[in-house]
Simulated assay, not measured.
Amino acid sequence: MSGRLRNKTALVTGSTSNIGQAIAEAFAAEGAHVVVSGRNAERGAQVVAGIRAAGGRADFLAADLDGSPEASRDLAARARQTLGGRIDILVNNAGVYPAPGTAATDEKTFDHVYAVNVKAPFFLTAAIAPEMAAAGGGAIINLGSWIARLAVPVGALYSSTKGAMETLTRAWAAEFGPQGVRVNAVSPGVVLPPSPPGTEPHPGEVMMKGTPAGRVGTPDAVARAVVWLAGDEASFVHGTVVDVDGGRTGVAVVAA
């Protein structure tokens, strides 16, 4: 790696597995001091141990981002202290994905998904962005989803929360950009960890047939895009949603 994030500090929510873990590992490999955050302390410790074994800097902070302002503010305060008084980069990655049909979605599920996927990053950004601005600037990267713009028959609740995050990305870019805080988003397509040889094909692979990539993506592909948005190379990028989806949303899919 090139050390593009050397001397930077970063908080990555939901980073004990999958895309969040890949982002935390990529940040650390580029020189950042990373706070790995999530609910599972055992997985968090494993991610931190792996980063440190590779020569990176990381610490784990347990957090249950339930949508309450208090939970978000508490994580922001603890992360700032752990990172030596400042947070240069925030990645709002944590989310939940129950995907019942609309008629089968009860109010409790609705409220929970919006609390975790929208309210928690909203209040976390509110707690961090002003201090970023006061310290001279920073970068915030939100995680969207391809199904926010290309609908599928199930998952209306989840996709609506990701649509909200993409809208917030543009609104926050307008609000905080003039203060030196860049806000952008990455919209992953069908992304799966590498499967062991002989594993049955995942149902998500069908969705990628006929796309330019012709296959599902991996967490590393998303992480590389997030690293770019977090670094100085993207200093002129504000309010943008970067599609990392193998061409699924932007290119006509050919039946295969």
Results as ranks from 00 to 15, higher is better:
247 G>C: 05
55 G>W: 00
242 V>K: 00
178 P>G: 03
9 T>L: 03
81 Q>N: 00
15 S>N: 04
28 A>N: 08
223 A>G: 07
38 G>F: 01
144 G>Y: 06
89 I>G: 08
114 Y>G: 13
245 D>A: 05
212 P>I: 06
250 G>K: 07
256 A>Q: 08
122 F>A: 14
216 V>I: 10
127 A>E: 12
87 I>M: 03
7 N>E: 12
21 Q>I: 02
143 L>Y: 12
174 A>I: 11
36 V>I: 06
118 V>R: 12
226 V>R: 06
248 R>I: 10
225 A>Q: 11
233 E>R: 01
31 G>F: 07
208 M>P: 10
218 T>Y: 13
240 T>R: 09
244 V>C: 09
2 S>T: 13
11 L>E: 11
112 H>L: 12
122 F>G: 13
167 T>A: 15
238 H>W: 09
239 G>F: 02
160 S>D: 10
130 P>T: 03
180 G>Y: 02
100 P>G: 14
226 V>W: 12
202 H>E: 04
33 H>D: 03
32 A>P: 03
161 T>G: 14
252 A>M: 10
211 T>P: 11
80 R>C: 05
45 A>K: 10
12 V>E: 04
122 F>D: 10
144 G>L: 00
232 D>R: 11
202 H>P: 07
29 A>E: 07
44 G>D: 05
132 M>A: 12
35 V>I: 14
139 A>G: 13
172 W>T: 10
130 P>K: 07
86 R>G: 08
16 T>K: 01
248 R>Q: 01
179 Q>W: 06
150 L>V: 15
98 P>W: 08
212 P>E: 02
99 A>F: 07
232 D>C: 01
205 E>P: 13
70 E>Q: 13
155 G>T: 11
194 P>M: 00
116 V>I: 15
39 R>D: 04
140 I>P: 10
88 D>V: 03
34 V>N: 11
250 G>Q: 11
39 R>F: 04
87 I>F: 00
26 A>F: 06
71 A>R: 05
123 F>Y: 15
8 K>W: 09
60 F>G: 00
256 A>M: 08
31 G>H: 01
77 A>I: 09
51 I>F: 03
225 A>T: 02
179 Q>I: 02
38 G>Q: 00
